[in-house]
């Protein structure tokens, strides 16, 4: 019997690009964070809280978190594609990963905007 392998999902480039763009966002945020720690030297709860009460900083942090989750999704899916051979198991694991990442994203929003 000839085993036919269906391919041609017509995506791949978008994810590959997203992986690179999200990596840049994370790198920029990390540098920004390092500069803040070096220059502003937030040392106690009060100064950290003041930092996170800026709306722009919350947004930047959220952007970082979303980039991280999106990046993680592509990376984890790549690992599953490489190593998990059963389609059913792969699909189940992918769904679990997506649900977990969406939950983390919502949780990040809650944490960032709960600082008053």
């Amino acid at each position: 019997m000839v085993k036919r392998i269906p391919v041609g999902a017509h995506y791949g480039l978008r994810d590959w690009l997203a992986q690179r763009v999200t990596a840049i966002v994370m790198a920029v945020y990390s540098v920004l964070m390092m500069l803040i720690v070096l220059i502003e030297r937030p040392s106690n709860y009060g100064t950290w809280k003041a930092l996170f009460s800026h709306q722009w900083f919350r947004l930047a942090s959220l952007l970082f978190a979303l980039s991280l989750f999106w990046h993680a999704w592509i990376g984890v899916r790549d690992i599953l594609m490489d190593y998990v051979k059963s389609t059913a198991v792969r699909l189940a694991l992918q769904i679990l990963v997506i649900l977990a990442l969406v939950a983390y994203a919502l949780w990040s929003v809650q944490i960032l905007w709960s600082i008053q």
Binding site: V7, G8, A9, H10, Y11, G12, D15, D78, M81
Partner: peptide, 14 residues
């Protein structure tokens, strides 16, 4: 290009 725009055919390359 259409044929290679696929998560497996081309984008397995890391």
């Amino acid at each position: 290009l259409d044929d290679l725009e696929d998560p497996y055919r081309l984008f397995r390359c890391h």
